Simulated scan of single mutants.
Amino acid sequence: MADPTELSSEGVGAGIAEVDACSLEIERKYDVIPAVICSMCCLFGIIYCFFGYRCFKAVMFLSGLMFGSVIIFLLCHKEHVLDTQLSVEASAGIGLGIGLLCGLVTMLVRSVGLFMTGLLLGLLLALAALLVTHQFYTPTTVWVPLGALLGTGMLFAVLTLQWQKLFTMISTSVFGAAIMTVCADYFVEMLALATHVYECLRLTPGPPLCWYSWVILGIWPALSLIGVLVQWKLTDDSFSHTEVVISRRQKRVQLMRIREKDAKKRQQAELPAKSAGQTDGHRHFP
């Protein structure tokens, strides 16, 4: 005869297993500082997505700032520096300082900024491809996603240096849409989608995404396409970052030419005065 306690435990276990995790209500507990940071990032994402190419210098600075700050923060926070574990505040301060330097370099040196912009585009596209591929196939080694990220990033960095305007608009639209998608993920499901992407990169198994996570993920390509169309319509042929550089050089050349003409006029005006002085001297002192 079967033990009734075993039956009851099996029944409870089966009932728990049948519960769909997507049907459970999400517990949302928002903190002030992360919510404010997320709102500011959403604003930056809108500027990136729809006005990225028009705000070329600002976008170059922000790209270097965010990329340098995030990388240095993760290195300082995860690794031991001088045999000491830095606090979150110290790691954030070091990351922000080095990020400012990276932002100045990407803003002042145009080729570095374009390389960084193309690198971000390649990393995001590779990340999207890995996320979709992970639903059907999981690599056995972490070098596969790392190689895909680095290879695609370097490829699009070179393409951006070759076709600057087109890939700058695409990169800023995709990056801005990604920022807004992460912000929506935070406010809707407390970064469940971002956590799933991180687990995919680490090749750790996790629960499948719910339907609303896929809806949030669908915001990314939709906003990216809209951003590219809006930027292409706004910029068209009326604005180019290269024309701004050329116009500044032309102004410098025109200013130098004006100064040369003024110097020649002064020399020509001084020559008759000198010759007149010499003739007067010969007259008084024969």
Results as ranks from 00 to 15, higher is better:
Gln85Leu: 12
Val36Asn: 06
Asp31Trp: 03
Met1Gln: 11
Arg283Met: 06
Asp20Gln: 09
Leu120Pro: 04
Val81Glu: 07
Ser240Met: 01
Arg257Ile: 02
Ser39Pro: 07
Ile37Asn: 14
Ser247Met: 06
Cys183Pro: 02
Ala184Lys: 01
Gly176Ala: 07
Val182Leu: 10
Cys102His: 07
Leu161Val: 12
Thr168Asn: 08
Val132Ser: 10
Gly64Val: 04
Tyr53Pro: 13
Leu203Ile: 13
Trp220Tyr: 06
Phe167Val: 08
Tyr53Ala: 06
Met66Cys: 15
Ala177Pro: 00
Trp163Thr: 08
Ala276Asp: 11
Thr141Pro: 13
Gly147Gln: 06
Leu229His: 05
Thr235Trp: 00
Ala14Lys: 09
Leu201Ser: 05
Val215Thr: 03
Thr117Ser: 14
Ile72Lys: 03
Trp163His: 08
Ala128Asn: 06
Glu27Gly: 12
Phe51Tyr: 04
Cys200Pro: 01
Leu82Thr: 12
Gly227Cys: 06
Gln267Leu: 11
Met190Arg: 02
Met1Asn: 12
Glu6Gln: 13
Asp31Leu: 07
Leu120Lys: 04
Cys22Thr: 10
Ala148His: 05
Ile71Ala: 10
Thr152Val: 11
Tyr198Gly: 15
Ile170Arg: 02
His241Asp: 05
Asp83His: 15
Gly68Trp: 00
Gln267Met: 11
Pro34Met: 05
Thr106Pro: 07
Val188Lys: 04
Ile26His: 14
Ala2Gln: 03
Arg249Gln: 13
Ala90Gly: 14
His80Asn: 15
Ala126His: 04
Leu24Phe: 11
Phe167Lys: 03
Ile26Trp: 05
Gly52Ile: 00
Gly99Cys: 05
Arg266Ile: 07
Ser240Gly: 15
Cys200Ala: 13
Ala90Thr: 09
Phe239Gln: 04
Leu108Gly: 14
Ile246Lys: 09
Ser87Ile: 04
Cys183Asn: 00
Ile47Met: 08
Trp163Arg: 11
Ala263Thr: 08
Gly153Ile: 03
Leu24Asp: 09
Arg259Val: 09
Gly103Met: 00
Val132His: 09
Ser247Trp: 00
Arg249Val: 14
Ala2Arg: 03
Tyr137Gln: 12
Pro208His: 01
Ile46Tyr: 03
Thr181Cys: 08
Cys210Met: 00
Met180Glu: 02
Leu7Met: 08
Thr140Glu: 13
Leu146Cys: 08
Gly45Tyr: 05
Thr160Lys: 04
Ala194Asp: 02
Lys29His: 13
Glu243His: 06
